[in-house]
Amino acid sequence: MSSLYEEIAPTPAEGIAVRRITVNVNGADRTLDVEPRLLLADLLRQGLDLTGTHKGCDTTNCGACTVLVAGRPVKSCTMLAVQADGREVQTVEGLATASELHPIQEGFKQEHGLQCGFCTPGMMLSAKALLERNPNPTEDEIRWALSGNLCRCTGYQNIVKAVLWAAEKMRAESK
């Protein structure tokens, strides 16, 4: 071949069936045509430009891709987009309102719960699901609830403190 970059005219893939799905992402209904094999993580990152959900391992190990589906933490790299059809999905971009951070985000900031920030969205969403079912967790309960989320930077100590900080703030706010 004469040159490294041969032009290949892109043509739509033939015979690939797509499914039309409607997913409620961070409170808004989004309707897209997707291949059945599209991962939920890729729907969010590529289809909806919500790149706060990270892909860390490609092996369902690390939890950086954690989102909430119907309020429950799910590794979005191991869920198909079509499985989210008709469901509510919350990502890290849906935590803050226009004017305020979520207490969990504040807690991570106040307690130095992040360094590189790569695991942080997944950590915060797993923590949110925990605090919604258990507003006053012990340190052990926090560590258990976050055991599907790996962090290479912090050693987890300040992540636990961040979640404790957020739990206290959320309890105070709900009074």
């Binding site: 790149t51 990270h54 892909k55 890290v92 985000q105 920030g117 790569f118 915060m124």
Partner: peptide
């Protein structure tokens, strides 16, 4: 840097 990371607005390579 925390402000963008906690909002999921970090510009990591794959982003």
């Amino acid at each position: 840097e925390d402000n963008r990371f906690i909002r999921g607005k970090g510009n990591y390579v794959d982003d």
